[in-house]
Write a protein that binds this DNA or RNA. Structure first.
Lengths: 345, 345
DNA sequence: TCATGGCGTGCACACGTGTGCACTCTGCTC
DNA sequence: GAGCAGAGTGCACACGTGTGCACGCCATGA
């Protein structure tokens, strides 16, 4: 009952028209102070709550944005989403959350849904979408900000915020080299091809700088069954023995989940970390501090990525122009790295 | 350009009226097969995407639900949200995600936003809201499902799905007793009072069954600075020494995060787990398998809670009646529990 | 006294879609 | 041949809000 009250009802109660009520509630200077106050008081008393649906239809603005992530249960993305939320809420933007699970059908469906709902902008933290569905995104005619999956040739509606994967990877591997390692492995993933390629390249850069010839059997690329933590861990666990038997004394991992899988595998094989083998992760999710040994890793500004991306999208919606952002990684040394068992000359 | 096409435009192209187009697209039996096909083909060719905003205004259904969580970065809630998503997407419901951070102002604002947007239902995974904002929720006149925070006296619009905290806790503590422990501590949290109280009660039940007199200094209740993982861990870490010096040989923790804090504290104090002290968690988040030693804990059906809650909400929206659900916990034994160091007679 | 101007209000239309009702047309039946 | 049923379509209104424009009123000034 308190629900169904519209500005028309208020108008009736105030003995005026809905136009006046609308203007009074929006503090239009056209309205006299007396009626403005009278209308506002009535609105309060009658328990009026504006109908955002009708407003959207009229103003052609929904004040809603779409957010696609590959998986919500990914702790990395959870932090990103948190950052998004922290900016969206204060500026009055609502967020439609959708997962894509790297499934082409769901990706299409999600974009379609955002279009139908006439969102004012889209945030993508799901690497495949940026590249694969450009045409579909373009048709919506709405600003898009990609997170950790660059904007290809910069079109005028596609923007991005990323971390400098390659530099982060190079720093991490250089640390291992500085500690005396020469035989260093890379354990990557197949289902996030862009980041994986950049981090692998950083790994190769560091080896090259140190004059180390990379060996084929130092590199393994896991193909996790799905998306998210569990699969990364399991897939990495399975591939670790092969790397160890290739004789590496340190393993640089695509992310902390993969590194955790390596830790578990070492535990089962009684390979002591870091004494017998050093391990380095990427992302610096909370987990990195909780495992034993705690993970040396590359810190990403996860929450900041989310909030910066959301701020960019907000600016774009307001018609401002924005600059793409590349955030700096930060190397974090913890307990999972040490010099190699015996120095390899 | 492909955007601004409405059913009126299609009507013009098909040399008919928007009424016919509307009916044709909705497969109304009033329309002849010929025109239906013609309209549908034109709609496709012109790149028509229905305007959900206008549809909502007309039908008084938004096909959107609101989801409030205390924090998105909480791994427990992340799984719940995932379950919600998995049900919502297929049935065509969109999800507005909002965080409350246990902040009364934000809680009010979130509910207000959901009302303005005329969501068809609300999902609450933020314990405080159920009890504190009943009046506000009632005013929206929309079904509400609470997750892990019961529905008080069951009103007709409030429903819930919870886990049986008390039984889970009792099972966990009984396991410790079976292993031979007599001096068992409880490390709880202050900012989730309902669950905390139920788990503490289960702890007391188990002690009572074994004829053990609980001691005041066996129980500590942490007051984490905020919500989510990090604060739980830190707060628990700080309180662990006090429990250890009370002479307990095992600690039952409010959740796995708290347990992780205990593990860290023990590590720093060189107290070996489980040899010198056993530790039990709650929730069975992924982390529980990754720490060393892996955590003995109480498994919760996290994803299922989300999907069941969403299914309930969907049924309620469709006008069906539903039953509140209490999910069974499942005790999981891992590496963090063992008999006490020397048997206390 | 009349023109002028400003202030406050109401009228009417718009946004895009759904739907009850009236209308037209075709073909059939008596 | 008139009447009628039924199928297909269009008209008009509704949903709740925002806004350009015209109107009425009052005060001011010539």
């Amino acid at each position: 009952m308190a629900d169904r009250v519209s500005i028309k009802d208020i108008a009736k109660a105030a003995d005026t028209t809905h136009s006046t009520v609308s203007r009074a509630l929006r503090d239009s200077p056209l309205i006299s102070d007396a009626t403005r106050e009278r209308v506002k008081r009535l609105a309060r008393e009658m328990g009026y709550t504006p109908n955002a649906v009708a407003q959207s239809l009229q103003t052609n603005r929904t004040n809603a944005v779409g957010l696609v992530v590959t998986s919500i249960a990914d702790p990395f993305l959870a932090d990103v989403v948190k950052g998004v939320e922290e900016v969206a809420q204060p500026v009055g933007l609502s967020v439609f959350l959708n997962a894509s699970h790297n499934d082409p059908n769901q990706e299409i469906q999600v974009i379609e849904t955002f279009h139908r709902r006439r969102v004012d902008g889209i945030l993508v933290a799901s690497s495949r979408i940026g590249s694969n569905h450009l045409d579909r995104l373009a048709r919506i005619d709405v600003p898009v900000v990609l997170i950790n999956s660059e904007a290809g040739e910069d079109s005028d509606f596609l923007h991005s915020v990323t971390v400098d994967d390659q530099t982060g990877a190079r720093q991490a591997v250089r640390h291992l080299i500085d500690r005396g390692h020469r035989r260093i492995g890379y354990l990557g993933v197949r289902n996030r091809p862009l980041s994986n390629e950049r981090r692998r390249q950083g790994y190769l850069d560091a080896l090259a700088e140190a004059g180390i010839e990379p060996q084929d059997d130092w590199v393994e690329i896991a193909a996790p069954a799905g998306i998210g933590r569990d699969q990364d861990v399991t897939a990495a666990e399975a591939l670790t023995p092969s790397l160890l038997s290739a004789g590496v004394t340190a393993i640089f991992c695509f992310n902390d989940m993969v590194a955790t899988g390596v830790l578990l595998a070492c535990k089962h094989q009684d390979v002591r970390v870091p004494d017998a083998c050093s391990v380095v992760g990427f992302d610096d999710i909370d987990l990195a501090r909780y495992v034993t040994p705690s993970l040396t890793t590359v810190h990403q500004l996860k929450r900041e990525m989310g909030s910066i991306a959301m701020q960019m999208l907000h600016d774009l919606i307001e018609g401002k122009t924005v600059q793409n952002r590349v955030l700096p990684p930060r190397f974090v040394r913890r307990e999972s790295t040490a010099p190699p068992p015996r120095s390899d000359a």
